[in-house]
């Protein structure tokens, strides 16, 4: 029996930039222009659904990483593994071909990534906001330049002032 990594290497050929065994999933990085082609090939292997569509904002490198975590239901051998199909896209011009036409299960997840990161999925059948209102979605809340301020653990005022106002 050949290992899953070899199988994927064979199927995708030289589309792969990097393949590594991460903790809990096999990460396959493909170039942006080969994403759709690789997705079709991976689907032919038997990976029939998308578990999660994730984007990560690398603000220093000016890049987004988009990962499709895919696995299988119908093929019991493959269902033990999770494959991460990743690609890096430009942070200033975030366009990526949509895989919702290949895996229907990615449809809502891509919509979510679209509203939180502002990544545009070209060819998505129904690219609308899902969870947020337009005002909040315009801020692209999951990008790293949207900062949520957390409270300090210390009370700045002294004892008497705290007892008088009791507010933080």
């Amino acid at each position: 029996m050949i290992s899953l990594q070899d199988m994927i290497k064979e199927a995708l050929g030289n589309n792969i930039i990097k393949i590594e065994d991460n903790k809990g999933y096999i990460d396959v990085v493909v170039p942006l222009e080969k994403l759709k082609e690789s997705a079709i090939k991976v689907k032919q292997l038997g990976f029939d659904h998308v578990k999660s569509v994730t984007a990560v904002d690398y603000i220093q490198k000016k890049q987004f990483m988009v990962t499709y975590h895919i696995s299988s239901y119908l093929n019991e051998e493959l269902s033990r593994h999770v494959l991460g199909l990743s690609t890096f896209i430009d942070r200033d011009n975030p366009h990526i071909p949509s895989l919702a036409t290949i895996w229907t299960s990615a449809e809502f997840q891509e919509r979510e990534v679209y509203e939180f990161f502002g990544i545009i999925f070209d060819g998505h059948p129904d690219l609308r906001l899902l969870l947020l209102t337009p005002v909040v979605a315009a801020l692209k809340p999951l990008r790293k330049d949207f900062v949520v301020k957390e409270d300090s653990i210390n009370i700045e005022v002294d004892y008497a002032a705290y007892n008088a106002t009791k507010w933080w």
């Binding site: 957390e150 653990i153 210390n154 009370i155 002294d158 004892y159 705290y162 933080w168």
Partner: peptide, 19 residues
């Protein structure tokens, strides 16, 4: 030691300076 205030997930516990 401020451990309680640091671990509090809701920032409900905070340290008050007392003389």
């Amino acid at each position: 030691c401020s451990s309680c205030a640091r671990i509090c997930p809701a920032a409900a516990m905070r340290m008050l300076s007392v003389k």
